[in-house]
Amino acid sequence: MKKYLIATALLLSSTTLAAAEGELFLYNWGNYTSPEMIKKFEDQYGVKVTITDFDSNDTALAKIEAGAHGFDLAVPSAGFVGIYAEKGLIQELDLARLPNHANIAPEWMNVAWDEGRKWSVPWQWGSTGVSVNTKVYTGDINTSAIFMDPPEELKGKINVIPEMGDVLALATMYEGGEVCSEDPAVMKKVRDALLAAKPSWMAMDYSTVEKMSNNDYAATVDWNGSSMRARLGNADVAYGYPKEGFGLWMDNVVLLKDAKNVDNAYLFMDFIMQPENAAALSAFARYANGIAGSDAFMPEDMKTAPEIVTPAEFADKGHFVLACSGKALEYQTAIWTELQK
């Protein structure tokens, strides 16, 4: 029995043991990688791509930090790129091997978490705002009051995504503070306002696309791409950019320190920075990609989508939500716990 077990296990592992040539191991958020684009890459370079999913930045970091993970590339959010670098989990990129590096749009080249893009290349980016069913509520939707101070029509039909960083960033900006604020007076206001708003919430759940489409929720804190997908299923759904400040985020591809397929990893990073392929990613994930020239290849419905193309009047209201630490994180965890106790 044991022998058979070991033999089978070894057999099952043969794919990972034979990792010498033609393979690439990508560690990414689930349902986030365009299968067509992967197929194209595999055909073009004869490399077999194995995608493994994670469901949160914290899990991904814990796994990679533990070592012996077996991945070549990972796709952490902006705030985590610095943490990966600080902990020595990723390699500095050899830009000479990335001809398409020049395609990175100017505004995404010198970013706060990676000046000059020496450690990470763009995957997708988006914003965190609110989605509202405009049939239920006809007032102003470009405000965090939708969930912080909800209008009568929406009470009891509001969802808030269970994402501590994103939600507290919106709430803090709504109360006049900055993302990752360490000001006790502001954070106290944030806590009291959230506790007062919570009775009006129906749920704290991720499935916003489904439930905005089928009218289970009338409003939700939402990511722009999710909101767009909900609108495609239900024309009454609209995306609001809170004028008090909305969140921005970007997921980035990093090359892990102990990657075994470095050559293929470079091929892949370069491949996704080709405008056509970046557009294919966006067409699948429904977010923008940060690659100049990809607009030309974008699907029609995304070129003009109000969720993807931030209106000019709100352009300066977006703030990046990076990973908070120290006192700011302490405040956030305490408030989050109290909110759900």
Binding site: D58, M202, T333, Q340, K341
Partner: peptide, 15 residues
């Protein structure tokens, strides 16, 4: 709907 935590969720939150 994730509004109320149980022990499992609470411990998960810490990790």
């Amino acid at each position: 709907g994730g509004k109320l935590m149980m022990i499992g969720n609470f411990i998960e939150l810490q990790f």
